[in-house]
Nucleic acid binder design. Structure first.
Length: 888
DNA sequence: CTCGGTGCCTTTTGTTCCGAC
DNA sequence: TGGTCGGAACAAAAGGCACCG
């Protein structure tokens, strides 16, 4: 048995997420006590009895504290208990319930008689459109509402009917009725962000209860460890919100959309008819308003609970929408149908020849996000006290554009919407920027106008950050990220610029990382800038680190890891403690372990204040004695020459974020946004001349059709007499090539242009496992994204069977299959093409690409290293442990 | 003596709450 | 009065370790 059955239970749950489509008869509920799985009928080691919905009385005689803790367990961890019925009360036995993971392990109640809960009609239960409990007695006293329903969680089954019919379909968001007494004022609604579909759990808060979901929580550890330890039986994901009190937060929010037409109307690409949208919505018990009726590619506007929705408590709850809400919700900022725009997960560069989206003022590196239970913590600010500023350069039109803002990830993987954070619209006297809210594929997006009268500049004083509870998000089907310690985000700005030919150019830029955790912001050291990022192998030079939370006790550790993550070198740098300041650290770079290298070698370093208080790893490069600094770009040393192919500066490989170097720009994946990266990092003015002289290749995005791989270039990279720069064209027709691209390439081949790279959104690996596929643009919709490459990341849940925690198994990335065709093999995770310095004796097949149609083989290198650091650390520890045991 | 299981304790982290401004 | 904001309380998660069979 496992040492810690409780953890095993958690592990079971996580590992078995992909099995959740098993029919209910095989569903199991993990016992927190033993880690064993129980048939649902025997789900509870606790007593279950049917009583009115959760109440504060304690019929079992538990103290309030005990009862609360019991609920903490049961609410979130016992799908069979709470989620099944609002009328089931869990009555943990006092003698067998105790707090803590350990005390439950030998719960003799595992064998105790349990009420039987039959769950017929479970066919078709899915996480996406789950049948929801519609209690036959859905009266107000036992109110069982979608507010307690987790859209990605288990189906809720009516205990009375056992049916999960259409009428029982749980809306993702549903206005709720009142009736159940609110037991704590602390649960008062503050924001509306809880209603964000799969990404926003609409958690119901139970007074005094913790939100954690021990059973189903993915932990930082078990995300990566020993995946084959167990083959857990999946417990039906419970709703993390199983309390049965009305949660007033949802009262404050309403996502209203019952059918596509409404959604389209609200999105502004259908005729908006006022009559479609009532200004008052009366919610009855059994009514539901699925926000995402079937398709996930749509946008749903959200009513701001703070401003737009008033609720009335009483037997009949209803929402009164202000008369101007349609105006607020349907701005004409972006009239482009969402289906023809690139999904938020897709990489979009920050600039083209003509345009550039640029962050003039970056946000502060720390911003404490607020929970739904809290009041707003205001807008993200700039270090100077103002707010971030974003400007679109190169736009000559007079029509205002919509600047979209959402919260993206900040790790080393490809940029994508952050699962645990959402942008939060700030309004008030101090806010000068008008903003509108959208929901795009479960991600809240703010849209603010970019107007020529403001020189296409926007002050972002209306964007706050909302933290969603980890337990809620982690229960989403397909969600593989964990929330714990995943507290860094970036503001992502995106704009779509209409072109005369009806197409659109999309640009996107992401801010520097923002630490959103209260505690981390005060404790974790953060390196914001390093005054040098390479030196010779001899070291000895002084490097000045600028950042936060440095102390005289701070240490700087240089490390090197192999491709498979094993740490092969570690060296503590000498820190000049006398000069040390909270924001400055003076470090003497240690000499590299091997002074005889003949190629630059990338290593990492981090600042560590204490045992677990270490900064994000930073990049550093040791250059061989005979070779000039990497800054001089020994391009020929790099086997991977995609930048040349794409007409990019090799310098563009480097992440321009402080201290980061030698990795793919996570803003846009592979090499997109490189020009701005280059500009930012090296201070180059304007577009790179080299960049400009190259005509772009064209990348077609076809909606829905899978090609042979995520990438398929039907045109030869070397066919063009000039180097290419890729342009991503969204089109539903494989035969369609971008007119623009055609113009830019040899005067317009019909059909598939030799320089066209096609890839399928369905194969594109950026989507979360549970996310809907990207929208398929209408046939006549084309969309151009200037994309200087394409990230080859595949998420761990993506199509590659390779486990994410097996970095050593990552296949080589880009393989030339035939002349004029470029294929990119699907990969495990985050396989941006690497530029890590090659060792003298590189392994693997490498060929320098040619612009003349030669074979092109690109070897992936140790990219995404930083992301893998933690994984590798774990692996290394395990290996070390194994080795140690082996030695002994 | 080693190893795994168990339970306890401590630390870390996430979430909620309070109060000042 | 409501929005911000800082601090901290509280509890769960995670880590560590000693004890025991």
């Amino acid at each position: 048995m496992f040492r810690d059955s409780w953890r095993l239970a958690q592990y079971h749950t996580m590992r078995s997420m992909d099995q959740d489509e098993q029919n209910l008869s095989s569903q199991r509920v993990l016992s927190p006590a033993s880690g064993l799985a129980y048939p649902l009928e025997e789900a509870s080691p606790y007593g279950i009895k049917c009583v009115p919905a959760y109440s504060e009385h304690h019929p079992d005689g538990l103290s309030g504290y005990e009862h609360q803790e019991a609920r903490n367990y049961l609410d979130s961890s016992r799908p069979g208990g709470i989620s099944v019925s609002p009328r089931i009360e869990i009555t943990p036995s006092r003698e067998h319930y105790s707090h803590g993971r350990d005390s439950l392990q030998s719960n003799p109640l595992n064998a105790s008689p349990r009420p039987t809960l039959t769950v017929p009609g479970h066919d078709g239960l899915t996480y996406r459109e789950p049948p929801c409990l519609s209690p036959a007695s859905s009266n107000s006293s036992t109110s069982w509402h979608s507010e307690n329903y987790s859209p990605w969680a288990s189906p809720c089954v009516s205990p009375s009917s056992g049916q999960a019919g259409a009428g029982d379909l749980c809306p993702r968001f549903q206005s709720i009725q009142t009736g159940s007494p609110r037991t704590s004022p602390s649960t008062s609604p503050r924001t509306e962000e809880g209603c964000l579909g799969p990404r926003s759990p609409s958690p119901s808060l139970r007074p005094g209860s913790r939100s954690t979901s021990p059973q189903c929580k993915r932990t930082y550890d078990n995300m990566y460890r020993s995946p084959n330890l167990v083959t857990g039986i999946r417990s039906r994901s419970p709703s993390p919100h199983s309390g049965h009190e009305e949660h007033p937060r949802q009262n404050a929010a309403l996502n209203y959309g019952s059918h596509n037409s409404l959604v389209e109307a609200m999105n502004g690409y259908g005729a908006v008819q006022p009559g479609l949208v009532p200004n008052k919505i009366v919610k009855t018990t059994n009514q539901s308003y699925p926000l995402y009726p079937e398709n996930h590619g749509e946008v749903n506007y959200v009513l701001s609970g703070e401003q737009d929705v008033k609720n009335k408590t009483g037997a009949d709850s209803f929402f009164v929408l202000p008369p101007n809400w349609t105006k607020q919700l349907m701005p004409n900022l972006c009239s482009i149908p969402v289906s023809s725009l690139p999904p938020l997960e897709w990489p979009v560069p920050s600039r083209t020849d003509q345009y550039e989206l640029h962050i003039d003022v970056q946000p502060k590196p720390h911003h404490r996000a607020h929970y739904e239970t809290e009041g707003s913590r205001g807008a993200v600010k700039a270090p100077t006290g103002g707010h971030p500023v974003v400007q679109l350069h190169g736009y000559r039109g007079k029509d205002p554009l919509g600047l979209q803002i959402f919260i993206g990830t900040a790790d080393e993987r490809i940029l994508k919407p952050h699962a645990f954070y959402q942008v939060h619209r700030i309004t008030g006297k101090t806010v000068t920027t008008t903003s509108y809210e959208k929901i795009i594929n479960s991600t809240k997006v703010l849209e603010i106008p970019l107007e020529s009268k403001n020189n296409m500049k926007a002050i972002i004083d209306c964007a706050g950050i909302l933290k969603l509870r980890n337990a809620d998000i982690e229960l989403r089907k397909g969600e593989t990220d964990i929330g714990r310690k995943n507290t860094r985000v970036r503001l992502v700005f995106r704009v779509h610029i209409p072109q005369p030919n009806g197409q659109h150019v999309s640009l996107q830029v992401a801010s520097h990382p923002i630490e959103c955790s209260q505690r981390s912001a005060h404790e974790l050291p953060m390196v914001e800038k390093q005054d040098m990022d390479s030196c010779s192998v001899l070291g000895g030079q002084q490097m000045i680190l600028t950042g936060q939370n440095f102390s005289s006790d701070s240490k700087v550790i240089f490390t090197e890891k192999t491709h498979d993550g094993q740490q092969i070198w570690e060296m503590e740098a000498t820190v000049d403690k006398d000069k040390c300041q909270p924001s400055l650290l003076f470090v003497e770079i240690p000499s590299y372990r091997d002074p005889s290298i003949c190629h630059p070698v990338k290593v990492n370093f981090y600042v560590i204040n204490g045992k677990r208080k270490r900064s994000q790893p930073q990049h550093f490069t040791y250059t061989p004695l005979a070779v000039p600094s990497i800054k001089t770009e020994p391009v020929d040393d790099y086997p991977f020459a995609m930048p040349q192919i794409l007409g990019l500066s090799p310098q563009s490989y480097y992440h321009h974020s402080p201290g980061s170097r030698g990795i793919i720009h996570p803003d846009n994946g592979l090499v997109s946004s490189l020009a701005s990266c280059q500009q930012a990092r090296y201070g180059l003015p304007g577009p790179d001349p080299r960049f400009q002289q190259h005509s772009p290749a064209i990348v077609h995005s076809r909606g829905g059709k899978s090609l042979s791989g995520p990438y398929q270039q039907t045109g030869g990279l070397g066919m063009s007499p000039e180097p290419h720069r890729s342009v991503l064209v969204h089109t539903s027709s494989p035969a369609q090539s971008s007119p623009l691209g055609a113009q830019q390439h040899h005067g317009g081949d019909q059909g598939q242009h030799p320089s066209i790279i096609q890839f399928s959104p369905t194969n594109q690996p950026l989507l979360r496992g549970g996310d809907p596929p990207p929208p398929q643009p209408p046939d006549n919709q084309q969309h151009i994204i200037y994309c200087d490459g394409y990230p080859q990341e595949t998420g761990p849940q993506a199509h590659s069977p390779i486990p994410a925690h097996s970095p050593q198994q990552y296949p080589t990335t880009v393989i030339q299959q035939q002349p004029y065709a470029l294929k990119v093999a699907p990969r495990g995770r985050s396989p941006p093409v690497g530029v890590e310095a090659q060792r003298c004796a590189p392994t693997g097949e490498e060929q320098r690409p040619s612009l003349a149609g030669e074979r092109v083989t690109v070897k992936e290198e140790n990219l995404d290293q930083m992301y893998l650091d933690d994984v590798n650390e774990i692996i290394r520890k395990d290996l070390t442990g194994v080795q140690a045991r082996g030695h002994t």
